[in-house]
Design a binder for these strands. Structure first.
Lengths: 223, 223
DNA sequence: GAGTGGTCTAGACCACATC
DNA sequence: ATGTGGTCTAGACCACTCT
């Protein structure tokens, strides 16, 4: 019925059938436009669908890449959330260490088993009431100089504002669990009280750090 | 930084501050374009943001409306989901009756307390394994002629294909719960096993039934 | 500077809703 | 028939990345 949906379907099939393989760069946008005989905006609509589905990633200035098996840069799990709302949040850092990754973690992050990763456990508080435990595993190669003060608040904020790196995309999956003893202790749950687990995999816009100092943050909204 | 985000911010503020009130029709798209000095596509991008946020609803041929307090047409709750995946689904109908709505239900559906609603409880099965219980409340005025055969499979499908009504939008909220005895019985959960509750409120594109018989369903995808 | 995506526009045409 | 949104286009310009 609609061109951009047809195009998205076609490209999705090519990804599923490995005609476009993991990590591969897709043809230049205008080349795709020629191929599908459509306009750039229409192509963008089509590709935006696949971006939402997590199949591809688009990098301004670089290109469009098939994402599925590409390495995420951060893996956070076990964010057990009890309340929503946008308020000031504080974090109590429970664990901050560098460990050798086991199979599960190395799989999630697509790194070599045994590679060193930060292991961070934070208890996040809202109005002094704990509302979530966040467990983060992140390869030390992403931010070799991470310090404990950096993770007292939002790690994402630290990454974006201090290190001038952009979180390119993040995908979340939600599952339900019975609270473990760790959660019970820090969140004050009863032994059978369930909670949410949100697993998030984040991608930086570039795997490489630094040399972005010239980037300016323009926060001025027009109007 | 970007015009369409600024416009969305501005209109969102006007909705929050009740400058545009619940149920009100927003100005014609081109009028908004004039107001914000922008193009139609840009305006669409802006409004699409608010659609995603659930603040407005857009009806082709009718207009754009502030949604928050508008009456949903269907309220389904307690869909406790254990597995995901797209496979064939069967439904065992556990309850199919018409009841008088209590306060909670009438609030959710924005109808008069005591108004008659269908009360449907279905156990959905995947490969003969129960995976969810779905509890639906729907004003009888939406589909006065609903029969039990119609709900053996997807109610949404029935509504869309047989009655030629379009589900205009649906919003879901997800919460976690300990399984109740009902869920334990039908899903075979242990007493403390948690599950998901997905509460969904669906809006039809029109509150009025019938007289849409001329609508054709064109399923032929080009290419 | 060259390559690549993102935004924005003006205008055409189409699909659906309402009268 | 008229009002209203949705899609699509051609082209301009901007923002970011990489070398």
């Amino acid at each position: 019925m609609f061109k951009y949906i047809d195009i998205a379907d076609d490209i999705r099939n090519k990804i599923i059938e490995h005609e476009y393989t993991y990590g591969q760069k897709l043809p230049y946008e205008y080349a795709l436009c020629t191929l599908y005989n459509c306009n750039k905006e229409t192509m963008k609509k089509a590709l935006d669908i696949l971006v939402k589905e997590g199949l591809i990633i688009r990098r301004r200035g670089s290109g469009t890449f098939v994402k599925a098996m590409e390495s995420p840069n951060i893996f956070t799990g076990g964010l057990s959330q009890r309340y929503k709302g946008i308020k000031e949040v504080e974090s109590e850092v429970i664990v901050f260490e560098v460990i050798s990754s086991d199979k599960i973690i190395s799989d999630k992050l697509q790194i070599e088993e045994g590679a060193f990763v930060y292991h961070i456990v934070r208890c996040r508080k809202l109005d002094n009431k704990p509302y979530s435990i966040e467990i983060i595993y992140m390869p030390i190669s992403v931010i070799p100089k991470l310090k404990i003060v950096n993770i007292k608040n939002s790690i994402y904020q630290f990454i974006e504002e201090t290190l001038k790196l952009k979180i390119q995309s993040a995908h979340k999956t939600v599952t339900g669990h019975i609270s473990s003893s760790l959660e019970q202790e820090y969140l004050g749950l009863s032994p059978t009280e369930p909670y949410f687990q949100i697993e998030q995999i984040a991608y930086l816009s570039s795997g490489v750090i630094g040399q972005n100092e010239k980037t300016k943050l323009t926060n001025n909204r027009s109007r």
